[in-house]
Simulated assay, not measured.
Amino acid sequence: MSQLQQERLLQVLLAPQISEKATYVADKNEQIVFRVASDATKPEVKAAVEQLFDVKVKSVQIANVKGKEKRFGRIMGRRKAWKKAFVCLQPGQEINFAAGE
């Protein structure tokens, strides 16, 4: 893998998405939810997760999340739209975010 591709993979994953829904999905479907770059593709997300966490990925689903409209006084503003990826791991694989070391 070239240096350019490796740098791109490090920029694809932004953060794990921690929410009630993400926790429910993780328990029920053995999936992990990540916030990803808005131009990320499924193969890029799969390669990035496998490289960073040293696990085998079974499948990836991606969803575009529309930004909410918010009010700033009289002015209507809008939050940025973003993309999230539901990563399904192979049976027996897991990512533990709590173990930092």
Rank of each mutant, 00 (worst) to 15 (best):
M1D: 09
M1P: 07
S2V: 04
Q5R: 13
Q5W: 07
R8E: 08
R8L: 15
L9K: 01
V12P: 00
L14E: 09
Q17A: 14
S19L: 00
E20K: 02
E20Y: 00
K21C: 02
T23Y: 10
Y24V: 15
Y24F: 13
V25N: 08
D27T: 14
N29S: 12
N29V: 06
N29C: 10
E30Y: 10
Q31M: 14
Q31S: 14
V36H: 01
V36E: 03
A37K: 10
S38A: 02
T41K: 03
K42Q: 08
E44Q: 13
A47Y: 00
E50D: 07
Q51W: 05
Q51T: 09
F53M: 01
F53R: 05
V55T: 05
K56F: 12
V57S: 02
S59P: 05
S59A: 10
I62F: 07
A63T: 14
K66W: 01
G67H: 03
G67W: 04
G67D: 03
K68S: 05
K68G: 00
E69W: 09
E69D: 13
K70N: 01
R71I: 11
R71V: 13
F72G: 04
F72I: 11
G73P: 04
R74F: 10
M76G: 10
M76N: 14
G77A: 10
G77H: 11
R78H: 09
R79K: 14
K80T: 11
K84G: 00
K84P: 02
F86R: 09
L89T: 02
Q93V: 03
A99T: 14
